[in-house]
Amino acid sequence: MVALQFPFTLFRTQKWMDDYGARDMRCGDLTEEQLKMDYHLIDISARVNPYTLTKITPFHQPQSMFYGSRGVGEKITPQVCAGILFDEFRHLSQFFSVYGPYRHLIGQMITHMQNGNGSPFSSMLLDRALKEHIVNDRTENSTFARLKEVISKNIDWDNKYYPVSEKGGLKRAITDSKLPKFDRFKDNFNGMGITVHDTWATYITIKSLKINSNHYRGMVNYKVQDHFGLDVDDISKLRFNQLRFFRIWFVLQRYNRFGFKPFMTNMEATIEVTGYR
């Protein structure tokens, strides 16, 4: 029998890291006509009209039959218009991020889209959220629980190593389980559903595995990447298209007058895994 050597790359999604050719990473590629005709993006903002570059202001004459409705205000530059759209974008994000330690992440990520020029985004809070999700996942198809089960079952306790012949069991433990995603009910309100939700690429590596006569201790590294960007399939869905938050996001990213770059969201967690004979 031969011992499995560590670090051991346990799992990689078919989608790869740093895929800047992905559809949701496009920017500045759509015209006003395309946005209106193909995606029905007419009413974008309650504050500005990005197509005419004018502010939207209320009529101030109480006697007017149009009092309280929106009218056309002063002309503005594309830069000023984008700034107002980003402020509205941040304001609307509050409805998806009501409570908890991660509620401010979406505001930080919107600001990063505004100023980061497409550079990757990482945060200790994102890493913490990933680690908490993995460790606290009590479902039957948790990657972490399945991995612990397989390691305990297949260790050669007499020789104190994990046999290379059983590495297929480790890989199946991951492929047969659900990867960590922020699609739980609570993620709709704690800020993680709107910042990450689904994920693009996941790499899982067993960094080390120490075995004694009746106990093992290992370190497992999760690297997860998502894209903070929208593709045309996203905005074509009614649940996205009907919300001003996503209409503003799509226009800031894809309208050729703005073209703000989407970016990679990077998360990483190294977790201790232990068990007994």
Rank of each mutant, 00 (worst) to 15 (best):
F228M: 03
L92C: 03
G73W: 01
L170E: 11
I248N: 00
H112R: 03
I44M: 00
S213C: 12
N115W: 11
P180S: 08
L170Q: 07
D198L: 03
Q14C: 08
N117T: 09
S165P: 06
T270C: 12
V273R: 04
L105M: 11
K160H: 12
F96P: 01
A82T: 07
D127W: 01
Y203H: 09
A269M: 05
I76L: 11
E74A: 14
C81L: 06
D38F: 04
F144K: 05
N214F: 07
N117L: 06
G21V: 10
G71A: 14
Q5C: 04
V98S: 06
M37Y: 07
V164R: 11
L179H: 07
W157T: 14
T205A: 02
I271A: 01
I76C: 03
A145R: 10
L125P: 08
Q5P: 07
Q63I: 02
F182A: 04
S236P: 06
R244K: 13
Q253K: 04
L92M: 06
G107P: 05
V72P: 04
R257K: 15
F11V: 02
V72C: 04
N221Y: 04
N190T: 09
I44Y: 00
R172H: 08
C27D: 08
F59E: 15
W157R: 03
T13K: 05
T54E: 12
H112I: 03
G28I: 02
K131H: 10
K131L: 11
F240L: 10
S165F: 04
N256A: 07
F144D: 07
L126M: 15
T13I: 12
I151F: 00
D198Q: 11
E33P: 05
Q225R: 06
E32D: 07
R138K: 08
D226T: 09
M264W: 10
W157H: 05
L230K: 01
G68W: 05
R138P: 00
T270S: 12
A82W: 04
I42L: 06
F95R: 10
T54H: 15
D226Y: 01
G116K: 06
G275T: 07
H60M: 12
T9I: 09
G68P: 14
Y161I: 04
F6H: 02
Q108L: 14
K181C: 08
N241H: 15
K237A: 15
E74T: 12
D176F: 09
K237V: 10
D19N: 13
G107F: 02
L53W: 05
F263Y: 12
S165H: 06
N115P: 02
N190P: 09
L126D: 02
M17E: 14
A145C: 08
D19M: 00
M1D: 08
Q14T: 14
H133R: 15
S119I: 03
K160Q: 13
D137V: 08
S122K: 13
C27Q: 08
T265N: 05
F263D: 01
S122G: 09
